[in-house]
Design a protein around this nucleic acid. Structure first.
Lengths: 106, 106
DNA sequence: TTGACATGATACCATATGGTATCTCATAAA
DNA sequence: TTTATGAGATACCATATGGTATCATGTCAA
């Protein structure tokens, strides 16, 4: 089995999966709903969802015969933790991001 | 050609490449020096360095017959930009990171 | 000049990855 | 109950990926 951090980085390495994450950020979706957003089969989308789930980036809730896919924000934590190793290199960038969030909170 | 963001995410998807990035964070190194840190051939390390270079995460400076590999902190920017899309989801985590950096600066 | 050394490049191999097609199962609806 | 629908699983395919082996090239040193 792979480490959590490896699974998380791997999950985000694919553009389709990053797009799925962004779509789910705006609301939960079933597999069929997600498939509508892409030019590929439901099976392919399902595979991507499995990878995202392995990476801890989404959770799946059974509801009848449907499966509700939900973004798991805590799944991003291991990646951010990894980035924190480079504090000394990207202070400026992070500060900009920090300020954007501060503004957001008001 | 791939987008910069895709090349950056792809570069970090491999554990060896993430380790190279961490090693280079502590100082520039030649290919031979980096190869000493891993149980693989110089050619394999060189391939990883090419991927990291494609991702904009390192720069290479020729110095005589040596090649100095250097971490390019700005290469992390596209990835952080992508994460900023999820501000509303990881405020807490980011705040912790922000505070750690604030402490660091003193 | 000549030999040693750091690197670049390429052919090749095994496995991983992203995709489709297809079959099965569970559940909703008629 | 019967039928339709959402999802899971698997076999299969083409290509990408991570690795080695090997040869070529440029540069430092004797």
């Amino acid at each position: 089995m792979q480490t959590q951090i490896q699974n998380a980085f791997r999950a985000l390495a694919d553009p389709t999966r990053r797009e799925i994450v962004q779509i789910l950020a705006s609301g939960d979706m079933t597999i069929a709903q997600l498939t509508d957003q892409f030019d590929m089969t439901r099976a392919a989308v399902k595979k991507h969802l499995n990878v995202l789930s392995d990476g801890g980036l989404i959770t799946v809730e059974a509801r009848g015969r449907e499966r509700i896919n939900r973004l798991e924000p805590n799944g991003l934590a291991p990646i951010l933790d990894w980035f924190s190793y480079f504090d000394q290199f990207w202070d400026d960038r992070l500060n900009n991001l920090k300020e954007a969030i501060e503004r957001n909170k008001k």
